[in-house]
Design a protein around this nucleic acid. Structure first.
Length: 372
DNA sequence: AAGCCGGGGCA
DNA sequence: TGCCCAGGCTT
């Protein structure tokens, strides 16, 4: 247990210290952070172009891609996505399946569906020019609208995201920052002369210095004013969120065809909606997996064959256990490489590859990457 | 206001 | 293993 482990500390109640937090010297704080940002700010592919005057399409795509997604990961998808859809017109004219294929593996697929829908609106009416206009687009909330309007249009809008929340909670010594509190702090500190750069600076600080687990306070340009750093327990700010436990889900799936061409269904609803996958049924409460298997076979008019194996897949709110069987049916098979699949379905298809490798004694291919 | 939505990195 | 990530939509 490290010295900074919050669990090893006595419980803290409310902000530290108990006396009111002194007002910050805004000019000095702004100058310190922007100076740091100008020296060591990250060079990222969506940061091309003049400060406050970036290409709105490139900024937009990046901001959607980075929602709840770490920068290192977003980078991998960013160039690929722009190459596939270089302009908003290209994106608007593409089929949704192609958009999801570019998004495959990145998660939160509603982002891709909203982005595609919004591209249709923008291709018809042009880019919004201010915060309110962006906010009206599907998939664009307060954070994204503030980011785009400040970065691409120079508007004085302060972003509030996970980094901003953590940075200001520590700076002001607030263990339980509400959404409104964070936004108020962000609004008050925003540098009106360089709103876009300020927003990026706060997020860079949160991502590289004021990190969740091991903040590098000695390197921080704001440490002189930081209540959490002074407390010696920076990781105690903000207090960790309590999350509901993940739900256990069981299901059965059929592999009709092979790992290159198989019968796939397009999933609907909120879970993996829009993606393709093996035909599957959830095991209902009070039902056995074999009963679900019979139901699935009847729905497809399929003859169920051998058991291929079980795959498990853990998501933030779900733990899915899927029994996979081979089956035969007179249904159209789709080229797997052209479809957008979740990791779960890639794992299911991998069962067949492993089995074939075993039959032909081809050796280890279990480390083959999903897709392709 | 709370629940839901992926997938991977990291201590 | 648990928490977090350049959040937004639905109920």
């Amino acid at each position: 247990m490290s010295a900074q482990d919050p669990a090893s500390l006595p419980p803290l109640r409310g902000p530290l210290p108990e006396r009111p937090v002194p007002e910050l010297p805004l000019p000095e704080v702004r100058s310190a952070l922007l100076g740091w940002f100008d020296r060591v700010g990250r060079a990222l592919p969506w940061r091309l172009g003049p400060e406050g005057g970036r290409d709105p399409y490139r900024v937009w795509v990046a901001e959607i891609l980075l929602q709840q997604t770490q920068v290192a990961r977003g980078r991998l998808y960013y160039e690929r996505f722009l190459e596939a859809f270089p302009t908003v017109q290209a994106l608007a004219g593409a089929p949704q399946e192609a958009v999801l294929k570019a998004w495959e593996g990145c998660g939160y697929y509603a982002r891709a569906r909203y982005l595609h829908r919004a591209a249709g609106l923008v291709a018809a009416s042009g880019f919004p020019r201010d915060y309110a206009g962006w906010l009206a687009l599907p998939g664009v909330g307060p954070y994204t609208a503030a980011a785009i309007s400040s970065l691409a249009f120079g508007e004085r809008r302060a972003v509030s995201d996970g980094n901003v929340r953590r940075v200001f909670a520590r700076l002001r010594g607030e263990r339980h920052p509400s959404e409104g509190w964070v936004q108020a702090q962000a609004d008050a500190l925003l540098d009106p002369a360089r709103p876009g750069a300020w927003n990026e600076a706060v997020m860079d600080l949160g991502a590289t210095v004021c990190t969740p687990r091991a903040p590098k306070c000695p390197e921080c340009p704001l440490s002189a004013w930081c209540v959490a750093a002074r407390s010696g327990q920076p990781t105690a700010f903000p207090a960790p969120k309590v999350r509901a436990a993940g739900l256990e889900v069981r299901g059965v799936a059929l592999l009709i065809g092979d790992s290159e061409r198989a019968v796939l269904e397009t999933r609907t609803g909120t879970l993996l909606g829009g993606l393709s996958g093996l035909p599957a049924e959830a095991v209902a409460g009070g039902e056995s997996p074999s009963e679900a298997l019979v139901r699935l076979g009847e729905r497809l008019g399929a003859r169920v064959g051998e058991f291929l194996g079980t795959v498990t897949h853990t998501m933030t709110h779900r733990r899915i256990t899927l029994d996979v069987y081979r089956a035969e049916a007179d249904l159209a098979r789709i080229k797997v490489a052209d479809a957008a699949l979740s990791r779960l379905d890639h794992k299911a298809l991998e069962l067949l590859r492993v089995r074939q490798a075993g039959l032909f004694e081809l050796g280890e291919i279990q480390d083959a990457p999903p897709g392709n």
